[in-house]
Design a binder for these strands. Structure first.
Length: 303
DNA sequence: ATGTCCCAGTCTCTGGGA
Protein backbone atom coordinates (compact mmCIF):
# COMPACT_ATOMS: atom_id res chain seq x y z
CA UNK A 1 0.00 0.00 0.00
CA UNK A 2 1.32 3.41 -0.98
CA UNK A 3 0.81 6.68 0.91
CA UNK A 4 1.87 10.16 -0.11
CA UNK A 5 1.72 13.70 1.20
CA UNK A 6 2.13 16.77 -0.99
CA UNK A 7 1.74 20.49 -0.41
CA UNK A 8 0.65 21.51 -3.90
CA UNK A 9 0.46 25.31 -3.40
CA UNK A 10 -2.92 25.82 -5.14
CA UNK A 11 -4.82 22.96 -6.70
CA UNK A 12 -6.22 25.36 -9.29
CA UNK A 13 -2.77 26.02 -10.65
CA UNK A 14 -1.42 22.51 -10.10
CA UNK A 15 -4.37 20.39 -11.27
CA UNK A 16 -2.74 19.05 -14.42
CA UNK A 17 0.51 18.37 -12.65
CA UNK A 18 -1.30 16.52 -9.85
CA UNK A 19 -3.16 14.42 -12.40
CA UNK A 20 0.05 13.44 -14.16
CA UNK A 21 1.74 12.59 -10.90
CA UNK A 22 -1.17 10.46 -9.66
CA UNK A 23 -1.26 8.61 -12.98
CA UNK A 24 2.45 7.86 -12.69
CA UNK A 25 2.82 7.01 -9.01
CA UNK A 26 -0.69 5.68 -8.26
CA UNK A 27 -0.65 6.14 -4.48
CA UNK A 28 -3.50 4.45 -2.65
CA UNK A 29 -3.96 7.43 -0.36
CA UNK A 30 -2.67 11.01 -0.72
CA UNK A 31 -2.79 13.87 1.75
CA UNK A 32 -2.78 17.28 0.08
CA UNK A 33 -2.14 20.67 1.63
CA UNK A 34 -2.61 24.25 0.43
CA UNK A 35 -5.36 23.45 -2.04
CA UNK A 36 -6.39 27.12 -1.60
CA UNK A 37 -9.96 26.23 -2.47
CA UNK A 38 -13.37 26.53 -0.88
CA UNK A 39 -15.12 23.19 -0.48
CA UNK A 40 -17.59 23.94 -3.26
CA UNK A 41 -14.72 24.69 -5.65
CA UNK A 42 -12.92 21.39 -5.06
CA UNK A 43 -12.84 19.41 -8.33
CA UNK A 44 -14.48 16.19 -7.15
CA UNK A 45 -15.29 15.17 -10.73
CA UNK A 46 -11.68 15.54 -11.86
CA UNK A 47 -10.56 13.26 -9.03
CA UNK A 48 -13.26 10.76 -9.89
CA UNK A 49 -12.03 10.78 -13.48
CA UNK A 50 -8.57 9.89 -12.14
CA UNK A 51 -10.00 7.00 -10.15
CA UNK A 52 -9.97 8.72 -6.76
CA UNK A 53 -12.52 9.90 -4.26
CA UNK A 54 -11.64 12.72 -1.91
CA UNK A 55 -12.53 14.50 1.31
CA UNK A 56 -11.65 18.19 1.20
CA UNK A 57 -11.64 20.86 3.89
CA UNK A 58 -11.09 24.36 2.59
CA UNK A 59 -11.91 27.94 3.31
CA UNK A 60 -11.04 29.68 0.05
CA UNK A 61 -8.03 31.85 -0.43
CA UNK A 62 -5.57 30.23 1.95
CA UNK A 63 -4.77 26.81 3.41
CA UNK A 64 -7.06 23.91 2.51
CA UNK A 65 -6.37 20.20 3.11
CA UNK A 66 -7.62 17.03 1.44
CA UNK A 67 -7.40 13.26 1.51
CA UNK A 68 -7.74 11.35 -1.76
CA UNK A 69 -8.15 7.57 -1.92
CA UNK A 70 -8.11 5.15 -4.85
CA UNK A 71 -11.35 3.70 -6.04
CA UNK A 72 -12.22 0.68 -3.94
CA UNK A 73 -10.98 2.36 -0.76
CA UNK A 74 -14.03 3.88 0.89
CA UNK A 75 -13.69 7.19 2.71
CA UNK A 76 -15.78 7.59 5.86
CA UNK A 77 -15.92 9.32 9.25
CA UNK A 78 -14.56 12.64 8.06
CA UNK A 79 -13.52 15.07 10.82
CA UNK A 80 -12.32 18.63 10.18
CA UNK A 81 -10.55 21.16 12.40
CA UNK A 82 -10.02 18.62 15.21
CA UNK A 83 -13.81 18.37 15.53
CA UNK A 84 -13.89 21.86 17.06
CA UNK A 85 -16.35 23.37 14.62
CA UNK A 86 -16.27 25.27 11.35
CA UNK A 87 -13.52 27.58 10.19
CA UNK A 88 -14.15 31.01 8.76
CA UNK A 89 -14.56 31.53 5.04
CA UNK A 90 -11.68 33.58 3.63
CA UNK A 91 -13.48 34.21 0.34
CA UNK A 92 -15.51 37.31 -0.53
CA UNK A 93 -17.54 38.35 2.47
CA UNK A 94 -15.73 35.96 4.76
CA UNK A 95 -13.99 37.03 7.89
CA UNK A 96 -10.84 35.00 7.31
CA UNK A 97 -9.39 37.59 4.97
CA UNK A 98 -8.78 39.83 7.96
CA UNK A 99 -7.29 37.04 10.04
CA UNK A 100 -3.78 38.01 8.99
CA UNK A 101 -3.49 40.77 11.57
CA UNK A 102 -1.67 39.79 14.68
CA UNK A 103 -4.56 40.62 16.96
CA UNK A 104 -7.02 38.11 15.62
CA UNK A 105 -4.79 35.38 14.21
CA UNK A 106 -6.31 32.05 15.15
CA UNK A 107 -4.95 28.90 13.49
CA UNK A 108 -8.14 27.10 14.49
CA UNK A 109 -10.12 29.42 12.23
CA UNK A 110 -8.21 28.07 9.26
CA UNK A 111 -8.58 24.89 7.20
CA UNK A 112 -5.55 22.98 8.43
CA UNK A 113 -6.80 19.53 9.44
CA UNK A 114 -8.98 16.83 7.95
CA UNK A 115 -9.19 13.21 9.06
CA UNK A 116 -10.94 10.27 7.48
CA UNK A 117 -11.09 6.51 7.71
CA UNK A 118 -9.91 4.85 4.50
CA UNK A 119 -10.32 1.11 4.24
CA UNK A 120 -9.92 0.68 7.98
CA UNK A 121 -6.96 3.06 8.32
CA UNK A 122 -7.27 6.43 10.01
CA UNK A 123 -5.71 9.11 7.79
CA UNK A 124 -5.04 12.73 8.76
CA UNK A 125 -3.97 15.52 6.39
CA UNK A 126 -2.29 18.43 8.19
CA UNK A 127 -1.05 21.90 7.33
CA UNK A 128 0.74 23.47 10.28
CA UNK A 129 0.88 27.26 10.62
CA UNK A 130 4.09 28.78 9.28
CA UNK A 131 4.93 30.78 12.40
CA UNK A 132 6.54 33.62 10.43
CA UNK A 133 8.82 35.03 13.14
CA UNK A 134 9.95 33.36 16.36
CA UNK A 135 8.11 34.92 19.27
CA UNK A 136 5.37 36.50 17.15
CA UNK A 137 1.67 35.78 17.77
CA UNK A 138 1.79 33.62 14.64
CA UNK A 139 4.57 31.56 16.21
CA UNK A 140 2.69 31.24 19.49
CA UNK A 141 -0.36 30.13 17.52
CA UNK A 142 1.74 27.54 15.71
CA UNK A 143 2.84 26.00 19.00
CA UNK A 144 -0.76 26.04 20.26
CA UNK A 145 -1.83 24.25 17.08
CA UNK A 146 0.73 21.50 17.72
CA UNK A 147 -0.52 21.14 21.30
CA UNK A 148 -4.06 20.74 19.99
CA UNK A 149 -2.85 18.15 17.47
CA UNK A 150 -1.09 16.11 20.15
CA UNK A 151 -4.15 16.25 22.36
CA UNK A 152 -6.39 15.18 19.47
CA UNK A 153 -4.15 12.18 18.83
CA UNK A 154 -4.23 11.22 22.51
CA UNK A 155 -7.95 11.71 22.97
CA UNK A 156 -9.59 11.16 19.59
CA UNK A 157 -7.26 8.94 17.57
CA UNK A 158 -6.18 5.36 18.26
CA UNK A 159 -2.42 4.96 18.12
CA UNK A 160 -2.95 1.26 18.82
CA UNK A 161 -4.65 0.96 15.42
CA UNK A 162 -3.37 1.82 11.93
CA UNK A 163 -2.95 5.60 11.80
CA UNK A 164 -1.17 7.76 9.21
CA UNK A 165 -0.65 11.51 9.54
CA UNK A 166 0.58 13.23 6.40
CA UNK A 167 1.29 16.86 6.09
CA UNK A 168 3.31 20.00 5.83
CA UNK A 169 4.23 20.42 9.48
CA UNK A 170 6.54 23.38 8.86
CA UNK A 171 9.13 21.90 11.21
CA UNK A 172 12.53 20.49 10.27
CA UNK A 173 13.03 17.97 13.11
CA UNK A 174 16.84 18.08 13.34
CA UNK A 175 19.82 19.89 11.90
CA UNK A 176 20.35 17.24 9.21
CA UNK A 177 16.91 18.21 7.88
CA UNK A 178 18.09 21.68 6.81
CA UNK A 179 20.76 22.73 4.33
CA UNK A 180 22.74 24.81 6.79
CA UNK A 181 21.92 24.90 10.48
CA UNK A 182 23.84 28.13 10.98
CA UNK A 183 22.05 29.90 8.13
CA UNK A 184 18.60 29.12 9.50
CA UNK A 185 19.46 29.56 13.18
CA UNK A 186 17.04 31.87 14.93
CA UNK A 187 14.28 31.35 12.39
CA UNK A 188 11.07 29.40 12.47
CA UNK A 189 10.87 25.72 11.51
CA UNK A 190 14.03 24.91 13.45
CA UNK A 191 13.55 26.53 16.86
CA UNK A 192 13.74 24.30 19.90
CA UNK A 193 10.06 24.76 20.89
CA UNK A 194 8.97 23.77 17.39
CA UNK A 195 11.22 20.74 17.43
CA UNK A 196 9.92 19.83 20.87
CA UNK A 197 6.39 20.04 19.45
CA UNK A 198 7.44 17.64 16.71
CA UNK A 199 9.02 15.26 19.21
CA UNK A 200 5.84 15.36 21.28
CA UNK A 201 4.16 13.61 18.36
CA UNK A 202 6.75 10.85 18.66
CA UNK A 203 6.05 10.75 22.40
CA UNK A 204 2.38 9.97 21.78
CA UNK A 205 3.48 6.95 19.75
CA UNK A 206 4.11 8.04 16.18
CA UNK A 207 7.14 7.30 13.98
CA UNK A 208 8.72 9.55 11.34
CA UNK A 209 8.36 7.07 8.49
CA UNK A 210 10.87 8.73 6.17
CA UNK A 211 13.60 8.90 8.79
CA UNK A 212 12.90 5.32 9.85
CA UNK A 213 13.95 4.24 6.37
CA UNK A 214 16.50 6.86 5.33
CA UNK A 215 19.33 8.16 7.46
CA UNK A 216 21.18 10.46 5.05
CA UNK A 217 21.26 14.23 5.62
CA UNK A 218 20.38 16.80 3.00
CA UNK A 219 17.15 15.27 1.73
CA UNK A 220 14.45 17.91 1.63
CA UNK A 221 10.77 18.28 0.76
CA UNK A 222 10.66 22.08 0.40
CA UNK A 223 12.85 24.66 -1.28
CA UNK A 224 12.14 28.40 -1.48
CA UNK A 225 11.15 29.57 -4.96
CA UNK A 226 13.62 32.41 -4.71
CA UNK A 227 17.34 32.73 -5.26
CA UNK A 228 17.83 29.40 -7.00
CA UNK A 229 17.40 27.58 -3.72
CA UNK A 230 16.12 24.40 -5.35
CA UNK A 231 18.85 24.36 -7.94
CA UNK A 232 21.43 24.54 -5.14
CA UNK A 233 19.52 22.06 -2.96
CA UNK A 234 19.12 24.58 -0.17
CA UNK A 235 15.93 23.30 1.42
CA UNK A 236 14.30 21.74 4.45
CA UNK A 237 12.55 18.48 5.27
CA UNK A 238 9.29 19.84 6.66
CA UNK A 239 6.70 17.51 5.10
CA UNK A 240 6.20 14.28 6.99
CA UNK A 241 4.37 10.99 7.15
CA UNK A 242 3.96 10.00 10.80
CA UNK A 243 2.63 6.53 11.48
CA UNK A 244 1.43 4.43 14.40
CA UNK A 245 3.39 1.29 15.40
CA UNK A 246 1.27 -1.19 13.43
CA UNK A 247 1.97 0.85 10.29
CA UNK A 248 5.60 1.61 11.13
CA UNK A 249 6.45 -2.08 11.21
CA UNK A 250 5.17 -2.45 7.64
CA UNK A 251 7.05 0.46 6.02
CA UNK A 252 9.42 -0.95 3.39
CA UNK A 253 10.33 2.14 1.38
CA UNK A 254 10.31 5.92 1.65
CA UNK A 255 11.19 8.44 -1.02
CA UNK A 256 10.91 12.15 -1.78
CA UNK A 257 9.99 12.69 -5.41
CA UNK A 258 12.39 15.54 -6.03
CA UNK A 259 11.68 15.51 -9.77
CA UNK A 260 8.16 16.77 -9.05
CA UNK A 261 9.70 20.01 -7.71
CA UNK A 262 11.12 20.82 -11.16
CA UNK A 263 9.51 22.94 -13.86
CA UNK A 264 8.22 23.68 -16.36
CA UNK A 265 5.38 24.05 -15.87
CA UNK A 266 5.78 25.91 -12.60
CA UNK A 267 5.97 23.38 -9.76
CA UNK A 268 4.85 23.61 -6.16
CA UNK A 269 7.63 24.69 -3.81
CA UNK A 270 7.19 21.28 -2.11
CA UNK A 271 7.98 17.80 -3.43
CA UNK A 272 5.76 14.80 -2.65
CA UNK A 273 6.83 12.34 0.03
CA UNK A 274 5.93 8.69 -0.62
CA UNK A 275 6.04 5.57 1.54
CA UNK A 276 5.21 1.96 0.73
CA UNK A 277 3.83 -0.60 3.15
CA UNK A 278 4.40 -4.30 2.89
CA UNK A 279 1.19 -6.23 2.37
CA UNK A 280 1.62 -9.87 3.35
CA UNK A 281 -0.42 -12.20 1.24
CA UNK A 282 -1.16 -9.70 -1.48
CA UNK A 283 -0.05 -10.53 -5.04
CA UNK A 284 2.96 -8.59 -6.31
CA UNK A 285 1.97 -5.78 -8.67
CA UNK A 286 4.84 -5.00 -11.09
CA UNK A 287 3.28 -1.75 -12.33
CA UNK A 288 2.93 -0.43 -8.81
CA UNK A 289 6.47 -1.43 -7.90
CA UNK A 290 7.73 0.07 -11.13
CA UNK A 291 6.37 3.45 -10.12
CA UNK A 292 8.56 3.42 -7.00
CA UNK A 293 11.55 2.43 -9.11
CA UNK A 294 10.85 5.38 -11.39
CA UNK A 295 10.72 7.75 -8.43
CA UNK A 296 13.99 6.39 -7.09
CA UNK A 297 15.66 6.57 -10.49
CA UNK A 298 14.78 10.21 -10.93
CA UNK A 299 15.51 11.21 -7.34
CA UNK A 300 19.26 11.47 -7.35
CA UNK A 301 20.74 13.05 -4.27
CA UNK A 302 22.12 16.48 -4.99
CA UNK A 303 24.86 18.39 -3.20
C1' DA B 1 20.09 35.88 0.66
C1' DT B 2 14.20 37.96 0.15
C1' DG B 3 16.12 37.11 -6.29
C1' DT B 4 9.28 33.72 -6.84
C1' DC B 5 4.82 32.30 -6.87
C1' DC B 6 -0.19 32.57 -5.64
C1' DC B 7 -4.52 35.00 -4.48
C1' DA B 8 -8.13 38.62 -4.24
C1' DG B 9 -9.29 43.21 -5.00
C1' DT B 10 -7.96 48.24 -5.46
C1' DC B 11 -8.10 44.65 -11.12
C1' DT B 12 -2.78 44.71 -17.03
C1' DC B 13 -1.15 46.56 -10.88
C1' DT B 14 -0.79 46.24 -5.62
C1' DG B 15 -0.23 44.05 -1.13
C1' DG B 16 -0.07 40.06 1.78
C1' DG B 17 1.42 35.43 2.67
C1' DA B 18 4.67 31.57 2.22
Amino acid sequence: MRFATWNINSLNVRQERVEQWLADVRPDVVCFQETKLADDAFPQLAFEAMGYSAAHHGEGRWNGVAIAARDGLAISDVVTNFGDGPVRDSGPGGAGAEAASEDDFDPFDEARMVAATVDGLRIVSLYAPNGRIVGSPFYTGKLAWFERLARWIREDADVGAPLVLGGDLNVAPTDIDVWDAAAVHGGTHVSEPERAAFRALMDVGLTDAYRSQRSEPGRFTWWDYRAGMFHKNLGMRIDHLLVSPSVASRVVAAEIDREARKGPPVPSDHAPLVIDLDEPGKPFDPDWDGALARIQARTKPKK
